[in-house]
């Protein structure tokens, strides 16, 4: 009650209106350097030819009637889905261990989690080349153990890319998950255990539903980031695996077909937004 009054009092003291004079500098910057470029992008996508002479839906039709490009969209979505699944599988146990640890271990864990986040994406990608290459760590270990005679080809495969993306994107999943894990009421977990539920049941019926908002925040970031991870996709995926970002780059700077690049770029935008909305919808669905 007292808290509610304090909050209401604070709101009146600092004014209930948005102070537009303060919001204007960033707002105008965004309008000019963010909204306007997207408007131009949309405009250019309605040129039917690469030379940008004829208006029309030609570029859109060409993109959406070609099985190759539809497969690129599908593969990009699939990659995002795999990245979310893989990071979830590893991030949840790590978050549970984090929650059960003392403050000292927690500080070390946070450091371990932040370290890759703060190392350049290019370097993280490079690290995975060193690891997955033919004479890399994985192949040498497998061959020393006698599990395989010839080195496996891990680079330029979807599996290799997903493994690399698991590390590259994991901090994005972990940070929101850790935050919500720390806020979770231990009494609910204890109650579930005291009432005879197994650890597994407690996890799926108590911990998972309570931490779902954190997972959704993390999954959104991982999905958005892995579907647009140009460097990781091109360097680890190589030329054989084509995803939307590489297609956009190639069309814009090599083929010089800007309308087509614009269509691909807007498709990437819609794909990511659709994924984010689906995750948000999942969250609302899970709450009820």
């Amino acid at each position: 009650m007292a808290g509610a009054i304090a909050v209401a009092g604070g709101a009146t003291a600092s004014g209930e209106r948005v102070d537009w004079r303060l919001a204007a500098p960033l707002g105008l910057t965004y309008l000019f350097f963010f909204a306007a470029p997207f408007a131009i992008l949309l405009g250019i996508s309605f040129y039917a030819d690469a030379e940008q002479t004829r208006l029309g839906l030609g570029s859109w039709v060409k993109f959406y009637s070609d099985a190759f490009y539809l497969k690129v969209i599908f593969d990009t979505l699939k990659l995002g889905f795999f990245a979310v699944a893989a990071t979830t599988l590893v991030a949840y146990p790590l978050a549970l261990v984090f929650r059960a640890s003392g403050p000292r271990v927690q500080r070390v864990l946070i450091f371990v989690i932040l370290m890759p986040l703060l190392t350049s994406v290019v370097i993280r990608t490079f690290a995975w080349i060193v690891i997955l290459a033919r004479e890399g760590v994985v192949n040498q270990t497998l061959m020393t153990l006698g599990l395989t005679a010839a080195p496996l080809n891990l680079l330029q495969t979807e599996l290799g890319l997903v493994i690399a993306l698991t590390q590259i994107e994991m901090p994005l999943m972990l940070l929101p998950l850790l935050t919500i894990m720390n806020q979770m009421d231990q009494n609910l977990v204890d109650a579930s255990r005291a009432l005879g539920a197994s650890q597994w049941r407690t996890f799926f019926r108590v911990v998972l539903p309570l931490t779902l908002p954190g997972w959704i925040a993390g999954a959104t970031l991982v999905f958005a980031s892995s579907t647009t991870a140009f460097i990781s996709q091109t360097v680890i995926g190589g030329a054989r695996l084509v995803y939307l970002p590489a297609l956009i780059y190639q069309q814009a700077t090599v083929v010089y077909n800007w309308p087509f690049a614009a269509v691909a770029s807007l498709t990437l935008l819609f794909t990511v937004l659709a994924g984010i909305m689906a995750l948000g919808w999942l969250g609302r669905f899970a709450k009820t």
Partner: peptide
């Protein structure tokens, strides 16, 4: 959350 790659191309065109 918006794909910054789309923004990069948009900025180049702009």
């Amino acid at each position: 959350v918006l794909p910054t790659l789309s923004y990069g191309l948009a900025a180049l065109m702009f």
